Amino acid sequence: MSPTLLKLAGVHTHIGAYHILHGVDLEVPEGQVTMLLGRNGAGKTTTLRTIMGLWPHSQGTIEFAGSKHRQSTPEIAQQGIAYVPESMGIFSDLSVAENLLLAARQAKRLQDLDEARLNWLFGLFPALKTFWQYPAGKLSGGQKQMVAIARALIEPRRLLLIDEPSKGLAPAIVQNLIEALRELKKQQTTVLLVEQNFAMAKALGDRVAVMDDGRVVYTGAMQELAEDEGLQQRLLGLSLGAHQ
């Protein structure tokens, strides 16, 4: 078993008057892709935002690399955690290059970007190089998603949180994303990935946690869930086999 990089124990989160997370227990092994699945409204996005400090937890503990944290979002990012929200969060009026520069804490100018890492990103997402000086807001949905993920990877990160990267994308673009994320897996990048595309979940996931009503109700190997249609129906109300 890989060592645990991220651990949530009994985490509760309130947003205004609403109690969203009801004691989340979750472990994310280092160097693996952990899928976070569940029906709409189960609490998956709130879990990612709580880990990132965007919504503070009201109870429980979050440990990263063995240390408890309850810092601000910038301090959490400094520890090497990056977040790709469902909305992607890119700056539409800025070029692809400027979007990546803003995410690079150690670079003040484009010339300061790590050339080797930039070439690695171009290998993952060739469209970045093609549209390097193009306004990010004019890119296709799939290209914007690539920019969003590349921003999170422009500097080495210990943990990548990604929320529904395939949402609204054409199947061919989804396949490109799968291939890029597989390359990240080869480099032992630790990823916690929320995804509704179950073919993508099966292709990428090492471990899986299923949420329901603000709690994690199942954890195990992704392959075991992918092979057990009865378990899929019970936990998710559908069959992965119908989403190939």
Results as ranks from 00 to 15, higher is better:
95 S>I: 04
95 S>C: 03
95 S>E: 10
96 V>P: 06
96 V>A: 11
96 V>F: 12
99 N>V: 00
99 N>G: 05
101 L>V: 12
102 L>P: 03
103 A>T: 10
103 A>F: 10
103 A>Q: 14
104 A>C: 13
104 A>E: 14
104 A>F: 06
105 R>T: 07
105 R>Q: 15
107 A>E: 05
111 Q>Y: 05
112 D>K: 12
112 D>H: 14
113 L>G: 05
114 D>Q: 12
115 E>G: 08
116 A>V: 10
116 A>M: 01
121 L>G: 12
123 G>S: 14
123 G>F: 02
124 L>V: 04
124 L>I: 08
124 L>G: 02
125 F>N: 06
125 F>D: 02
126 P>I: 03
126 P>G: 08
126 P>Y: 01
127 A>I: 13
127 A>S: 12
128 L>F: 09
128 L>D: 09
129 K>P: 05
129 K>E: 14
129 K>I: 01
130 T>H: 08
130 T>I: 09
130 T>A: 11
130 T>L: 14
130 T>Q: 15
131 F>K: 14
132 W>H: 01
132 W>G: 07
134 Y>A: 01
135 P>K: 10
136 A>V: 12
138 K>D: 09
139 L>H: 08
140 S>V: 13
141 G>S: 09
141 G>A: 13
141 G>T: 02
141 G>D: 08
144 K>L: 07
146 M>V: 08
147 V>P: 11
149 I>F: 06
149 I>R: 05
150 A>G: 06
152 A>W: 10
152 A>L: 06
154 I>T: 06
155 E>C: 07
155 E>V: 07
156 P>Y: 11
157 R>T: 14
159 L>D: 02
159 L>P: 10
159 L>S: 04
162 I>K: 02
162 I>C: 02
163 D>M: 04
164 E>Y: 00
165 P>V: 13
166 S>D: 07
166 S>I: 11
168 G>S: 10
168 G>L: 13
168 G>W: 03
170 A>K: 02
